[in-house]
Design a protein around this nucleic acid. Structure first.
Length: 542
RNA sequence: GAGAUCGUAGCUCAGCUGGUAGAGCAACAGACUUUUAAUCUGUGGGUCCUGGGUUCGAGCCCCAGCGAUCUCACCA
């Protein structure tokens, strides 16, 4: 089986060899990396590495059996200190990175960190015997395992008294400063591993993110949704309005786009008979980067046959409130809630930046028209009023542009800031139809579409609608878009295959998208998306 | 795209009106059997982001560039 050629990025020189699959692999040597060579502590640690080798120990060890987490080890100690002897309760074996080291002669206290937390290790010459000399070689940043009895010190710190240990991995570069951690934002993002090892708060955010996504999947599976994966490389980037990234497939000699939305493929699955379907995965949009936008971001998108906007609203509210409740309980286990429940009803409060968001359902519901009227004194259903409002507020394209587009601009400029001031999630409903080419229109008021967006702290968190399943209307809408918009706006590209799928019949359905990164931001009190994306996109270092 | 702020030791940060580059942690040498950011004694460590300019003299002032953060703009 042929292997794809792999190349490691970076400024290092490459040595190319031919492996037995007759495929070229590149390996980089550390020799060319000036920043490493110039670091004097690197040389000191290289010397230490040799000492391990001279002691007959491979500084890059192998598998370690019988490990428990530091959290489990800690739990082996009885809650009452006196019930476990200070110098020896149950036997345990733990492993982790050495984050603190206090050498006081014939006794060394180390603090090791694993993904569950931290634990103090007592390394005493009296207990460890001859191996103590080797243990003295351990330094900050090394990864090691320790066996011993769980006890405590006279100050009450739960401690594993090591009777055996091993070096798992030697660290050749020093870890970040032990007390202040790593605060340089650029290094935190570019070398996230340093952030994770030095800043427990950062680790906690990504653990929380993982838990949130997992709970979301559980929630959807409980409602009989089926998870799927649809193409990320599409020959037409549809389902949203955004500039796509372009790439090229050599064998097919064809340009492809990274998807900006999975929508049109998920709806094809509705046609195929998958009645409840969801996907949690990346979308890619070639647009600006700021505290709320990363070029690749994770979306939950789901479709439910025989449902509609109201169904999506119930699902969204239940899901978001449930996730927020769990998060609040986690936080409140550590510290009391920011505000006490006022009315005796269960309250779900989470801190966000300077304020506290109340996720207690039901969420507020406001119509697009009423928000537009309050903020811009414009009547959504009166084109003349919109035109006048656009002119009044100095929109450049007030004369020629479509009134729904103008209303959308006024809404973003004037109504969204007002939404940002609210400390509760808000459903904005009844969007102008011209802004919703994939949405079913309101039968009573055809100018409006059956769509909502959920705003929290001024962020668009969710977007949902009653799906348009009439192929004739869909084709006409695509056609109108095609006529009116620029080439680079991908909604303007007619997806004939999708329209054909609709002709076979797509059940009436509700559809929903939730921005996972933004949801995690809200639930973990992060005001920048870069703090909830492990490796956010930054400019390459020159 | 515009503005503001920032870039100094491995890390966290000082640096006065422009006058020989500083601290803590980390490192190195040593002491220490209950520490908790251990402590104590001693030592070494710098492309002050890069390139120009002004000046007798620039970490500091000026210009340009690179990178970052935030705000605004763009983004249905």
């Amino acid at each position: 089986m042929p292997h794809p050629a792999r190349r490691r990025a970076g400024p290092l020189p490459f040595i190319t060899c031919v492996c037995r699959y007759n495929t070229q692999f590149d390996f980089c040597t550390p020799a060319g990396n000036a920043t490493v060579i110039d670091n004097p502590q690197y040389k000191d640690r290289m010397a230490r590495l040799e000492k391990w080798r001279l002691a007959g120990i491979d500084p890059y060890g192998r598998r370690v059996d019988g490990l428990i987490s530091t959290e489990q080890a800690r739990a082996l100690h009885s809650p009452n200190l006196e019930d476990t002897p200070h110098d020896g309760g149950p036997q345990a074996r733990v492993a982790g990175r050495i984050t603190l080291l206090r050498d006081i002669g014939k006794l060394i206290f180390m603090t090791i960190a694993d993904s569950s937390g931290r634990l103090q290790i007592g390394v005493a010459k009296q207990i460890l015997g001859e191996k103590f000399t080797t243990a003295k070689l351990l330094e900050l940043g090394d990864i090691a395992w320790f066996s011993g009895k769980i006890g405590h010190t006279k100050t009450g710190e739960i401690t594993l008294w090591a009777d055996d240990f091993g070096l798992a991995t030697k660290a050749l570069l020093p870890p970040p400063e032990k007390f202040h951690g790593l605060s340089d934002t650029e290094t935190r993002y570019r070398q996230r591993y340093l952030d994770l090892m030095a800043n427990p708060q950062s680790m906690e955010i990504f653990l929380a993110r993982s838990q949130i996504v997992r709970d979301m999947r559980d929630f959807l599976h409980a409602r009989n949704f089926m998870e799927v994966e649809t193409p990320m490389m599409q020959s037409l980037a549809g389902g949203a309005a955004a500039r796509p990234f372009t790439t090229h497939h050599h064998a097919l000699d064809t340009d492809l786009y990274l998807r900006i939305s999975p929508e049109l493929f998920l709806k094809r699955l509705l046609v195929g008979g998958i009645e409840r379907v969801f996907e949690i995965n990346r979308n890619f949009r070639n647009e600006g980067i700021d505290t709320r936008h990363n070029p690749e971001f994770t979306m939950l998108e789901l479709y439910e046959a025989y449902s509609d906007l109201a169904g999506m609203m119930e699902l969204t509210q239940t899901l978001v409130a449930q996730l927020a409740k769990k998060r609040a309980e986690t936080l409140h286990a550590k510290q009391p809630p920011p505000t006490p429940g006022a009315s005796g009803l269960p309250q779900i409060h989470l801190p966000y930046g300077e304020r506290v968001i109340d996720f207690t359902p039901p969420f507020i519901k406001k119509t697009y028209a009423e928000l537009l009227w309050q903020s811009a004194q414009v009547d959504l259903l009166d084109p003349a009023s919109i035109k006048a409002g656009a002119a009044r507020h100095g929109l450049e394209n007030a004369r020629q542009a479509d009134t729904d587009v103008l209303a959308g601009e006024l809404f973003e400029r004037l109504a969204e800031p007002a939404l940002a001031a609210l400390d509760q999630p808000v459903f904005v409903v009844d969007y102008p139809a011209g802004l919703c080419p994939l949405t079913r229109r309101n039968p009573q008021q055809p100018q409006l579409a059956e769509r909502f967006e959920l705003y929290v702290a001024g962020m668009e968190l969710a977007n949902a609608y009653t799906e348009l399943n009439d192929p004739l209307v869909q084709e006409a809408t695509f056609g109108n878009q095609l006529a009116g918009l620029k080439e680079e706006d991908s909604m303007a590209r007619m997806d004939q295959d999708f329209v054909e799928a609709l002709r076979y019949g797509m059940p009436p359905a509700g559809g929903l998208g939730i921005g996972i990164d933004r949801l995690v931001m809200l639930l973990t009190n992060c005001t920048s998306i870069r703090d909830v994306v492990l490796f956010p996109q930054l400019k390459p270092r020159s």
